[in-house]
Amino acid sequence: MRSQRKILDATLGLIASEGFGGVNIAAAAQAAGVTRQTVYSNFGSREDLVSQAMADLLLRATNGLRSRLAEIDDVAEYVVELFVVGRAVVRNDPILARLVRIEPGNPIFDADMLARAKPIAHELLRPLIKLDPTIAPHLDDIAQIGIRLGLSVVLFDDPDIESDEDLRRLIARWVVPALSLTPR
């Protein structure tokens, strides 16, 4: 576990300084002070390493998001705030902000990105089931839609939805009804 943490932290350091294209197994191993075999045994491939490093960072960066969402007892409001605060998390973290740049090795553009993003989406959406147990059978669909729309919100920032209030109105008006979530 300790070597995994060192490798993930070293990978995030490489992303911060060199960009996604600067990350490879040898560089991560050297930066973490471990062998390449240790990196391969823990992560399997460069894509898995970058993806897990970004997922780890995203989950750590969303601690404030989780505490804010924990106060919400309405399914529709939860979904709206997940988009709003999620966008703010990406905008405010220099490493996560790299996700919106087209650069070699950016995991957003990996073929398996959706499969790797699903566990993160499920983790963030799981509290919805406590708020409304009828959502459970649809959680995977909601995760799919959430990932795709969340990426759109982050990648294609639009002056028409620049403020948090603008984004709240857009999500409440179009996404909440599309997901058949009714506000209280």
Rank of each mutant, 00 (worst) to 15 (best):
P177H: 11
V85H: 04
L155R: 02
V90L: 02
E103R: 02
S17R: 15
D140H: 06
S163M: 01
L114S: 09
S51W: 10
V79N: 04
D166P: 07
Q4D: 13
I142L: 10
V50G: 09
A136S: 14
A61S: 13
D9L: 05
D73Q: 14
N63Y: 05
I135R: 13
L125I: 02
D164W: 00
V85E: 04
L151P: 09
L155M: 02
A178Y: 15
T11D: 00
A117R: 01
G64K: 01
P104C: 09
T182D: 14
R91Q: 14
N24A: 03
Y78K: 06
T11Y: 08
Q30K: 15
I108N: 00
I171H: 03
V175W: 09
K118R: 07
A29T: 04
G22M: 13
V79S: 02
D141Y: 12
H122A: 09
I7S: 01
L8S: 08
Q4A: 13
A172W: 08
W174N: 12
H138E: 07
E77Q: 07
R68D: 10
L96T: 01
F20E: 07
L69A: 00
E47Q: 12
G44R: 13
T11I: 02
R5T: 10
E165P: 08
L82H: 04
A10K: 09
V79W: 05
L179I: 06
G22A: 15
N92Q: 14
H138F: 13
D73C: 12
A27G: 11
A32Y: 03
T134P: 08
V85C: 04
F43K: 09
V23Y: 13
E162F: 00
R2N: 14
D132A: 11
D56R: 15
V100D: 06
F109Y: 09
G44E: 04
R116E: 02
G21Y: 04
L82C: 03
E18V: 11
P127G: 05
P137W: 15
E77T: 05
E71I: 07
L128Y: 12
P159Y: 00
R5K: 12
L167K: 08
L179M: 09
E81T: 03
L149R: 08
R148N: 07
V175G: 09
A136W: 05
H122R: 11
Y40C: 09
A172K: 11
R68L: 07
E47I: 04
